[in-house]
């Protein structure tokens, strides 16, 4: 292939790739929704209906711990204790963080900022934050959504250390996720490869000092900023 034809083919390949990437990056739920809308005109497709669960009890975040707190640890409310092991409905927002876990995400009353890189586990997140555990779906992980959600599942109380280093106090073994506004079930788990919006976690140790193997006095990277031969081998 000569240069001329290459100059034509390359942009075509790049544009095609870009288009595929954009398609891959689209919200899977939105795509599914469009398909549902299209299918609604056909006789075969089931209608999208709000989820109803008469067996669950609505639990609010402020009903999990007794407020205000005493001088030491928190106490679960009578209602929360009574619902432990039972089916509950919980309405709130996903916490947006970098953790890609195949099953777990955090759920809070409000749309919280969580500056994970800066704060780590010293944070402003509420103790009532719920760790939600979804059934594992191969090669997928819960993907952050901005809208308010209502989750249905079994409530579990008690401190438990997680592999992330965090200690969870309230967990929900969730089997149904719905849009809180419409009650329509949603699929939160998306292929990890398609979760383009994820920030890349940064390790706590950001690495080594720059240095050079070029001997002085001909080159000194500390003094000659135009150098391009830095090799981080001496620290």
């Amino acid at each position: 292939m000569n240069l001329k034809s290459l100059s034509f083919v390359l942009p075509v390949i790049l544009l095609t790739g870009l288009g595929l990437l954009m398609l891959a990056g689209k919200d899977v739920a939105a795509v599914a929704h469009n398909r549902d809308s299209d299918a609604a005109s056909t006789a075969d497709a089931p209608p999208v209906v709000p989820y109803e669960d008469s067996s669950s009890v609505a639990l609010k975040f402020e009903e999990i711990f007794v407020m205000p707190a005493g001088p030491k640890g928190l106490e679960y409310t009578t209602k929360a204790r009574a619902l432990a092991g039972k089916r509950v409905a919980l309405t709130g927002f996903m916490l947006r963080n970098d953790n890609i876990d195949p099953a777990i995400f955090f759920f809070c009353e409000t749309q919280r900022a969580y500056n994970e890189r800066e704060e780590g586990l010293a944070d402003s997140l509420p103790p009532s934050m719920v760790q939600v555990i979804l059934p594992v779906k191969k090669n997928s992980a819960p993907a952050w959504r901005q809208e308010k959600l209502t989750l249905y599942g079994t409530l579990e109380l008690g401190p438990r250390q997680e592999q992330s280093g965090r200690v969870s106090h309230v967990r929900l073994h969730c089997d149904v996720v719905t849009d809180a506004a419409t009650g329509v079930p949603l699929e939160l788990r998306k292929p990890v490869a398609l979760q383009l919006g994820r920030a890349i976690p940064i390790p706590s140790d950001l690495g080594s000092l720059p240095s050079s193997t070029t001997p002085p006095p001909f080159f000194n990277p500390r003094r000659n900023s135009n150098s391009t031969t830095h090799h981080p081998d001496k620290l």
Binding site: G73, Y76, G158, P159, Q161, Q163, G165, R166, V167
Partner: peptide
């Protein structure tokens, strides 16, 4: 972590990453 002084502990051991 055992909850003997109430819930809300953040204490962890060394079994995590």
């Amino acid at each position: 972590l055992d909850g003997s002084a109430g819930a809300g502990s953040g204490r962890v051991n060394s079994s995590t990453a």
